[in-house]
Design a protein around this nucleic acid. Structure first.
Lengths: 217, 217
DNA sequence: AGCTTAATAGGTATATATACCTACAACAAC
DNA sequence: GTTGTTGTAGGTATATATACCTATTAAGCT
């Protein structure tokens, strides 16, 4: 960054075509220089570690082999805080966006954004700002709700109930579960009964479906 | 196609960035002319239908709103057989590739291919050839095996057994299932017993997990 | 202090599932 | 024609789950 006006970029994306596409798009922008590229997160980190001062912006995909984009982002922000990070994601799901935010990314845009938005994001971020695609906001909300509903569904179960449900899923009988937990079989049966009500079903079959649907097992 | 040597391309991809990237990559190739672009399958079809002779090659993504790439390919091959189709996919799963082949696509490459492979594929296809990315072959095989194993797993069950398993999954008791199928409860119980052996489990819990795992339900 | 919930446990039934057993008719395969 | 599978059905037990009920203890909340 000897020259203040120029942004030196490292691109990380496991799709070579995306890398080539971005390079082509930036080829006519003198202030945006693609210095290096990597096809996985670990490679990007190695390139950065070798000479951190060569870069001041990391443009990274999320889903990459060896080291994900968010994990890469975390490491970069910890080890090389002078490097700004723009996450470029194919997916508009909540966990991804939340993780990116948690990883202190400076921006997040979707791959269905055009060249214009990419340039806009790059300029804003290289000037120390942030840029989060407007597209993801409603999507975040929608997905967030969905995830939240799942969590809420599970959170209505007590710890013990979840524990017992997990053991039911492993094909243990009430008696076996009782032995494992050092409690009475009657207690296990009572928990089963309560689970029926909470899971809105009438037999163990329903419990198993519930457990699988909401991610126990 | 008044000029024999030139390829007139229609790009269809719901990710504007991919479109822009491809256009940039092809911008220095005089023989490869991007005539139009579409961000969904229906739009691509409309553009083609408006003036089919403007194009001789369709470069399309698979997953697109309104009309998928494979469905688009089928329609194009039926209505405008002079248009060659190159499918450009983000995903390397079997169903996608199989569908593309069934849709008579002339080529299939992954987005993690580079500029070089894209140009190679475009040239081969525009000369009347085909191009299937080498990358997908082992992937197809691997996924195909997986799918095959699932099918084989399920095919060990007789029709009646699958039928009963499906009803068990709906939380019906043996008695209720017997009523529905106009058979004896004992018969249903016998089927259950046989299912335990075939599904390698010891209770209905195992049957439910098996059914969900192998796609009944 | 009073209220709620979770977790515990027991009683008493009934319902349902599971484990073996035999048996037979239809059908396909060798 | 014999063999094997599927689908059917019954007998006889036992094991397990399910449906109600009450009740105590500990913990947390207002």
């Amino acid at each position: 960054m000897e020259e203040s006006g120029k942004t030196h970029i490292l691109i990380a994306d496991d799709h070579q075509m995306v890398i080539d596409g971005i390079k082509s798009m930036l080829s006519d922008r003198e202030e945006l220089i693609v210095v290096a590229e990597a096809t996985n997160g670990q490679m990007a980190l190695d390139i950065l570690a070798a000479d951190p001062d060569r870069f001041n912006l990391l443009l990274t995909d999320i889903s990459m082999p060896l080291l994900s984009g968010t994990d890469l982002c975390k490491k970069v922000k910890m080890q090389f805080p002078h490097v700004q990070v723009l996450v470029l994601s194919m997916y508009n799901n909540v966990p991804a966006v939340k993780e990116a935010i948690a990883a202190e990314a400076d921006g997040y845009i979707l791959k269905n954004s055009g060249k214009k938005e990419l340039l806009h994001a790059l300029h804003r971020i290289s000037n120390g700002g942030t840029y989060y695609s407007q597209d993801i906001l409603p999507i975040i909300y929608g997905q967030y709700q969905k995830q939240k509903e799942q969590d809420e569904e599970l959170s209505q179960l007590s710890l013990r109930e979840k524990e017992i449900l997990a053991l039911i899923l492993k094909e243990f009988t009430s008696e076996e579960i009782a032995e494992k937990l050092f409690i009475s079989k009657k207690t296990v049966d009572n928990h089963r009964q309560n689970l029926f009500v909470k899971c809105n079903c009438r037999s163990t079959v329903g419990l198993v479906k519930y457990a699988i649907k909401y991610g126990i097992g």
